[in-house]
């Protein structure tokens, strides 16, 4: 948390909507991290047992989110689902960030032949709608948490590569980079010590803004049946499972959908807050770090 400047909280407190977003994100992160330990009906959540006698129970005190077609408690399944959303979102954004930063850095600084090849490759990926690309890769790679992460990261990194490329290009003509050349530092040292730390802020900020979209796209893949396989209670999968019964048991679809909506809105609000906070005073934050 040392990375967050203290006056960011002051900034948040004055804006209740952003505070709500911040609280949602924190709650989601905490629940996602400790999900397996707070389940009241773990066997329902993991989906290992089923009891058809309890199927399609509407929301009640016993089952606040109702039960699904196999009589499993939806609340427990939604709670465990948050863990998968968290893991997938963090891994997708993290992995794409690493690939995108490296590609953008090398392409931006070395330019020339390698740079052109890398950026044309990036453009090739950018030419497709990202979800379409992810669906294509997911269906080739097969279903699973890891393959979902890979499929999403493959469609995601070019956006960071582009952003990083632009940012590197503006930093590489800075006078301190010329000064580093005059000192006699190698290209690699200049890249790692001069270009990288000074061009990272836009892309890292963007990656924070993208967490909500990553959760949404992971769910979209599962909803379309190419993402996380059953019985893992990923939110998108829960929604698609309940979809068939939506007229007679709305809750199977409604509650995972509601939680997904609230989480994504929370991330987007926090993203907007970060954007608004960073924008007019980018320099002063750089100085504080």
């Amino acid at each position: 948390m040392g990375l967050i400047p203290r006056d960011f909280f002051k900034f948040l407190v004055k804006r209740p909507l952003y505070t709500a977003g911040f609280i949602i994100v924190i709650a989601f992160t905490i629940i996602g991290s400790i999900a397996p330990y707070i389940l009241t009906k773990p066997e329902d959540a993991w989906g290992v047992t089923y009891d058809l006698n309890k199927a399609f129970q509407p929301p009640s005190l016993e089952y606040p989110f109702g039960t699904d077609a196999y009589g499993r408690d939806m609340l427990n399944r939604v709670i465990l689902g948050s863990r998968y959303s968290l893991i997938i979102a963090v891994c997708v954004v993290g992995l794409s960030l690493i690939i995108g930063v490296i590609v953008g850095l090398v392409a931006g600084y070395l330019a020339g032949f390698i740079g052109t090849i890398l950026m044309r490759l990036t453009d090739m990926f950018l030419a497709y709608p990202p979800l379409l690309l992810a669906v294509a890769f997911a269906s080739v790679l097969g279903r699973g948490v890891l393959t979902t992460i890979m499929a999403l990261a493959i469609s995601w990194w070019p956006w960071y590569a582009r952003l990083m490329y632009v940012s590197v290009n503006s930093v590489k003509s800075a006078q301190y980079v010329e000064a580093a050349k005059v000192v006699g530092l190698s290209k690699f040292t200049i890249m790692a010590k001069y270009i990288l730390p000074n061009s990272l802020i836009p892309v890292v900020t963007q990656s924070m803004l993208d967490m909500g979209s990553a959760i949404l796209e992971a769910s979209a893949l599962s909803f379309l049946g190419v993402g996380v396989p059953p019985p893992i209670p990923e939110w998108g999968r829960l929604i698609s499972e309940g979809w068939v019964y939506v007229s007679k048991a709305y809750w199977i679809t409604f509650f995972p959908g509601l939680v997904l909506l609230v989480t994504v809105v929370g991330f987007n609000l926090l993203g907007d807050a970060v954007k608004e906070y960073m924008n007019p005073r980018l320099r002063s934050i750089v100085a504080k770090r």
Binding site: Y176, E178, A179, K193, N198, V286
Partner: peptide
């Protein structure tokens, strides 16, 4: 100022 790396 511009000739000194702000991150060092």
């Amino acid at each position: 100022q511009g000739s000194l790396n702000p991150r060092m």
